[in-house]
Design a protein around this nucleic acid. Structure first.
Lengths: 214, 214, 214, 214
DNA sequence: CATGAATGAGAGTTCATTCAT
DNA sequence: CATGAATGAACTCTCATTCAT
C-alpha cells in the first residue's frame, strides 16, 4: 500500500505506512483550511504529530505531501463508489444507486473535492497526470454502469458523456452548494439529476422517486 | 471602467485604466502558465512592461492583481454571453444559440476558466464573494433563457438546475478536454448536450442537429 | 534668511523662503507624530501643500528637510530666550526671569525638543555639528546671565556648569513630564530649580517665590 | 533570564539566552554606529555571527531586537548602580558614592545612553512603557538614597527632584561631553555636581572633595 | 529513526529620487 | 516653476530543506 513513487529514507515499510497516514490526515485538515500554498511544512509536521525533521524522513519535498493527499482522497472516492455497485441488481436500479452514492459522497467530502480541484495543478506534470488517471477511473466506473442501461437507440458515446455529466454535477454540488441549496436539498438534487439522465437514456422514470424506491 | 475597489496612487483615470489593462494581460499569461502563487510580483511587472515600483503605483497588494484578473475575465465572459442572446428570436432557437455561444466561449477561454477555478479561493472572503456574484450572474443569464423554453409540465426549478448543469458542463469542456476530445469535437459535444437539455425540457429535438441548423 | 547651505533649483529667494516655511511647518507636524524616519517625503510634500516634484525643487535630499527643521526650531528657541533677557534689570531678577522663560519655552515646545533630541543624530556629521553650535549658543546665553550673578567665592566654571544644568533640566521637563507632573506643576518645578541654583550660587533666596515676584 | 516577552521558535532556553546575547552585542555595536533605523536586520544577523534565517528564529520582528537591546542596557545600568549602594555606610557617604558610581557609569556607557535616548521612541507604545518603567526604577534608586540624607527642613519633593536632576545630569555627561570636557574632567564634574546637591540639601560640604575622601 | 537549529534564496512591499511634460 | 508617473535598490520577513546530534 505504501506509495513507492514517493521516496523515503526510512526502510521499515509498516512505519512508513503509519507515518504517511498521520501526515495525510494532518495535511488534509490544513489544506481544507488554508490551501496547499498557504500551509507550511512545519505546520504539516506539527499537525501530523512529529517534527519537521521526521517529516522529511518520509518525503522528499512538500509537493510529495500534496501527491499523497490527492492519492489518498481518490482512493477513498474509489472505495466508496465501488462499494455502491452491485452487478447483480437490475441495471437501472444499479445506476440509480451508484449515482445516489456518488452524489452523497461528494456531499460528505466536499472539502476534499475542493482540495483536488484547486491544488492538483500544483503537482508537476508527471505526477499530475498520474492523479488524473484516477479521476478517469472514477468516470469509467460511472460509465460502465451507465452502459448497462443503454437502450438500442443510444450510442456508447452517450454513456461516456452522461457519465462525465454526472461526474461534474456531483462536483458542482460540492463546489456550488452555496448557490444550489436555496432551491434544493441533496435528495431533491439527486432525484432531479437522475431524472434527467434517465430521460437522456430514453428510459421512462415512472415514480420520479430516488434510487432507494427500487 | 477603472475599478475603484482597488486603490491606486496614480490619479489619472485613463492612465490607470491603461496600465491595469497591461497588468491584467501580463498577469493572465503568467497565471495560465504557473498559477497565482508561483507567479511573483516582479514577473507580473515585467510581463506588464513596467517596473516593480510602477506596478505598486496601481495596486496595493499582489492579491489586487488577482482580483483585477478575475474581474476582467468575468467581464469578458459576460459580454460575450450577452451578445449571444436575442430576445426576438424563437425561444428554443435562442436557447440553442446561447448554449452554443457559451460552450464556444469556454473553449476559447479554457485557460481563463482554469484560473478562475483554481485561484478564486486565494482572494480574501469579501473580495471572493464579490467575484462569485458575477458567476451567479452568468448562471442567471442562462437560466433566464431557459425559462422561456419551459413547458407547462416543468417547474422553474428545472430551469435553475439545467442552467447550472450547462454552466458546469461548459467548464468541464474547458477543464477536461483532455478526457473528452478523444470522443468529441466541440461541435458534437455541443450538439449532444443541447439534445439532453431539450429532452429534459420535454422538447422534441427533430434533427438532433446543432444550433446553427435553426 | 533663506538658508543657503541647502541648495535649491529655484532662484527666486523670496519664493524659496516661502516654500521652505511651508515645508518646515508640515514636516514638524509629521515629525512630532511619527519621527523623521517614519515620515516619507511624499507625506512632507502633501503636508506642505505641494507636490513631491516641487518639494525637490527646494531641497536636495530628505535630510535637508531635517536640517531645516532643526535649524528653525533652534531659531525659535533663541528668539524667545533672547527676548527674556533684560540687561538693565538687577542680575538676580534677570536670572530668574530668564530661567523661568526658558522652562516655559521647553513646556510650550516639548515636542520640538523631542524632535531635536531624537533626530539630530540622523544628520550627517558636518550638518549635525552646525546644529549643535546653536545649542551651544543657547547654553551660552544662560551662562552669560548666570555670570552676572556670580559671587566672589564662585568660579566661572560654576556659571558654565549651572547653565548646563539648567539647560538639561529644561529639557527634562519637556522629556520627562510624565514622571514629574505627579508631584510638580510647571510653576513649582521652576520655583524649586531656581531655588537650587541660587543656593549653588550662595545667594539667599528669601521668599522662595517664583521669578515674577521680583 | 531569557526574555519571554519576545517569542522564539527555538525551545532550548539556554540556547535562546546565548543567541540573544550574541544578538544584543552585535546590535549594540551597530546601533551605536548608525542607529536603529539605518541598521538592517541582515547586518544584525551578520554582526551576531549567524544568518538572517537564524536571527528570525529568535525574534519575531526587527523591533524585538531594539527591545532586547534597551532591556539589556537598562539591566546593566541597574546592576551597576545597585552594586554601589551600601545601606550600612553613613547616608551622605552613601549618597556621594552612588552619585559617583552613576556618573562613572554614564561615562563608561555613553553610547548606550545615546541609543536609549534616541531609539526608545521607535518601540511601540506598550513596549516603550515597559522600558520606561526601568528608567523610573533607576531614578527611584537615586531618590531612595537621597531621602536618607534629607534634613528636617526639606520635603520629600526635594529628594524626588534632586534625584531627577542627578539622573539627567548624568545623561548630560554622556550626551554632551563634547561641550563639557573643555572645562571639566569626569572627576571635577562629579565633585561639583555633588557639591550642588549637598548645598541643596543644606548639608555643609567641608572639603569640597569628591566621594572618595570619606 | 527522531529531532530541531541552521540556512539563505527569494518573496512582497516601500520610498527617496528623477525627469519629461 | 510645478507636476506626478516612473524607477529600482533596498528593506523586512518567510519557509522549504538540510544535517549534526
Amino acid at each position: 500500500m505504501t506509495d513507492s513513487r514517493i521516496l523515503s529514507n526510512v526502510k521499515d515499510a509498516e512505519l512508513v505506512e503509519k507515518r504517511r497516514s498521520q501526515m495525510i490526515k494532518g495535511a488534509i485538515t490544513l489544506f481544507k483550511e488554508k490551501g496547499f500554498h498557504r500551509t507550511t511544512t512545519r505546520e504539516i509536521a506539527k499537525a501530523s504529530g512529529f517534527s519537521i525533521g521526521t517529516l522529511y524522513e518520509y518525503i522528499r519535498t512538500k509537493e510529495d505531501v500534496l501527491f499523497l493527499v490527492c492519492n489518498a482522497i481518490y482512493e477513498r472516492f474509489r472505495e466508496r463508489l465501488e462499494a455502491a455497485i452491485d452487478w447483480n441488481s437490475p441495471p437501472v436500479a444499479n445506476l440509480k444507486r451508484v449515482i445516489t452514492a456518488y452524489f452523497q459522497l461528494m456531499d460528505d467530502m466536499q472539502e476534499e473535492v475542493i482540495i483536488m480541484y484547486q491544488e492538483v495543478k500544483s503537482l508537476k506534470k508527471e505526477t499530475r497526470e498520474y492523479v488524473l488517471t484516477k479521476e478517469r477511473d472514477m468516470v469509467s466506473m460511472l460509465e460502465n454502469v451507465m452502459v448497462t442501461c443503454l437502450p438500442a437507440s443510444s450510442s456508447r458515446q452517450d454513456a461516456t458523456l452522461l457519465a462525465n455529466n454526472i461526474f461534474v454535477q456531483g462536483q458542482m454540488w460540492g463546489f456550488r452548494r452555496w448557490m444550489l441549496q436555496k432551491q434544493f436539498t441533496l435528495e431533491t438534487y439527486i432525484e432531479r439529476q437522475i431524472h434527467y439522465v434517465l430521460q437522456a437514456l430514453a428510459i421512462a422514470d415512472p415514480g420520479q422517486a430516488a434510487a432507494q424506491t427500487d
